[in-house]
Design a protein around this nucleic acid. Structure first.
Length: 525
DNA sequence: TCGTTAGTTGAGAGG
DNA sequence: ACCTCTCAACTAACG
């Protein structure tokens, strides 16, 4: 009997359409080896300062669900190890001198993010040194990113969605998803015994089960249950959304027209957390949506397929652009003289800017780990070019901590977009923190839910409570400046100043980098 | 090379 | 309710 084959889960916390897992199962069957699924709790990611409790809870629930789904398919239960993968694998799993056990092969899914690329390169090298067979393939995106790049003009993804959509149409639809049964089919031909490996791990005194929040240093406070982590919940949510109004919600989906203040239920799919962790396959999503389309269906970029294209586009840009998550050294990013004003940032993050719409959104972000896309636009514009003139990198870090669906590439790209640093350039279009939300229904209920200080404020003043006469404030039990903060900045004035400031920043970027195409966005750097 | 066109999601005024 | 225009004039892609 051969030594076990390891499948290392990172993203793609699912069994259905898990291409790398399918390959690992087949390899194990060919070599009569036991398949051992493993997840590594990496201190790089598990840190309460960097990853909020809601997002961490979602991950743990996803691992629970994954482990039980694996066992339903007669796989071993998921081993959860602790530590830096570059140490954990060589120390515990690769065969050492004097030890007869160790793994024979390591499989995982490719990852396009810089930290992951570096980690996987190093782990791969260490594995080969220990005579471990290493294999990986794509799976987090609709297409293999390297394959897609070869089909893009100049080997680089375009910078606009319309050009990217043209690329998507030129390559044809992504492959059909593989069912969970088909992924796990070959497992029947493998031995179901990893006792030797298990004994070895036990002797290292590593706990092997899924940890709880307390063990990872998180407070006991029970986090929001708005999103239940895991593949099962993802598939159920997809099924439910596709069935809404007999598929009309899918066919008529137009992202910019959805209501950011709708929260019971939200008007979008809210599948993004599941996409981020890979609980749901993008190809599964794509083909389910395609299967109920008709001639009246909306089109990219606003349609649901369009949403997958955005994800694909920004993932690809993040893959090939150096320093994609920073202004410095990022060839796509405009250089802007952002201020550093910690009290503005903390007012923004804690939902105390004095603008009820902004504050409700920020408090929803922190408490639920989710925010509607247009609400993200509104608060991102407010923090950066619209009002507070703080660097988009600061906002990105706050989103990364709190959003369950925080994705390295998408988060950076959207922050560059909203701050007019890249992709979007019409800096004179500024979201108003009070006029913008006015056009949406349910906005009053939304604000009352997340900013309870304003609960008794009449609708007429709910978005601009500083305009309420003192008598009204007193009757509402909410004095502005006492029970609810005064505005940190006056939007009507500061946004005009900032537009001029942005105009100067644009001019400066022109003279600094005279050619706006080609050399500026140097292909190699 | 250069001119034209299009760009997921602004606000406010006026018809 | 739903257009259209103005504000000011941005950049990437394409022919």
């Amino acid at each position: 009997m051969t030594q076990p084959v390891l499948f290392w889960f990172r993203k793609s916390l699912r069994v259905h359409d898990n291409l790398a897992l399918k390959r690992a199962v087949e390899y194990a069957a060919q070599h009569s080896a036991t398949l051992v699924p493993v997840f590594v709790i990496d201190p790089h990611f598990v840190n309460p300062d960097k990853v909020g409790v809601v997002r961490m809870n979602f991950l743990l629930e996803s691992l629970q669900d994954l482990s039980s789904t694996l066992q339903q398919h007669r796989a071993q239960q998921l081993l959860v190890l602790r530590g830096n993968p570059e140490q954990v694998f060589p120390d515990l799993l690769f065969a050492r001198k004097g030890s007869e056990s160790g793994i024979s092969a390591l499989f995982f899914e490719n990852d396009t993010e810089p930290y992951a690329k570096q980690r996987d390169t190093r782990v791969g090298e260490l594995a080969r040194k220990a005579d471990v067979h290493v294999e990986s393939c794509y799976g987090h995106t609709l297409y293999d990113p390297d394959w897609l790049l070869k089909r893009a003009r100049g080997g680089r993804p375009p910078e606009t969605m319309s050009a990217f959509t043209a690329l998507m149409e030129s390559v044809g639809p992504p492959s059909k998803p593989v069912s969970a049964e088909d992924v796990m089919k070959s497992l029947a031909n493998t031995p179901q015994d990893d006792e030797l490996l298990r004994k070895q791990l036990m002797s290292e005194a590593q706990p092997l089960s899924i940890p709880n929040l307390a063990e990872l240093g998180y407070p006991d406070a029970s986090p929001s249950r708005l999103f239940k982590g895991g593949e099962s919940a993802a598939l159920e949510k997809l099924r439910e959304f596709c069935a809404r109004k007999k598929g009309e919600c899918v066919r008529k989906f137009a992202k910019p027209e959805t209501n950011p203040a709708a929260f019971e239920p939200p008007e979008t799919t809210t599948l993004s957390p599941y996409m981020k962790f890979g609980c749901l396959s993008p190809r599964e999503f794509y083909h389910r949506v395609e299967s109920i389309r008709n001639s009246k269906s909306t089109q990219p970029p606003v349609s649901l397929i369009g949403q997958l294209y955005w994800r694909e586009h920004f993932t690809l840009l993040g893959y090939v652009t150096p320093n994609f998550d920073r202004m410095e050294g990022n060839p796509l990013c405009r250089r802007i003289d952002w201020d550093t004003t910690p009290e503005y940032v903390s007012a923004w993050e804690s939902g105390k800017t004095g603008y009820p719409w902004i504050d409700a959104c920020m408090r929803q972000l922190v408490s639920e780990g989710w925010l509607h896309h247009l609400a993200r636009h509104s608060v991102a514009c407010f923090l950066t070019r619209g009002d507070l003139w703080q660097s988009w990198e600061v906002g990105k870090a706050v989103f990364e901590k709190h959003l369950i669906d925080a994705d390295w590439s998408l988060n950076a790209a959207n922050w560059m977009w909203l701050s007019c640093s890249a992709f979007f350039h019409q800096y004179f279009r500024v979201y108003s923190p009070s006029a913008f939300p006015k056009k949406y229904s349910h906005v009053a209920a939304f604000i009352r839910k997340y900013v309870p200080e304003l609960r008794a404020m009449p609708d007429a003043y709910l978005l601009e409570p500083w305009k309420a006469p003192e008598k009204v404030q007193r009757e509402a039990g909410c004095l502005i400046g006492k029970h609810y903060p005064s505005r940190v900045v006056i939007h009507e004035d500061i946004s005009k100043e900032n537009i001029q400031r942005m105009k100067r920043a644009f001019e400066l970027n022109k003279t600094e980098r005279p050619s706006s195409t080609g050399t500026k966005r140097s292909r190699e750097e």
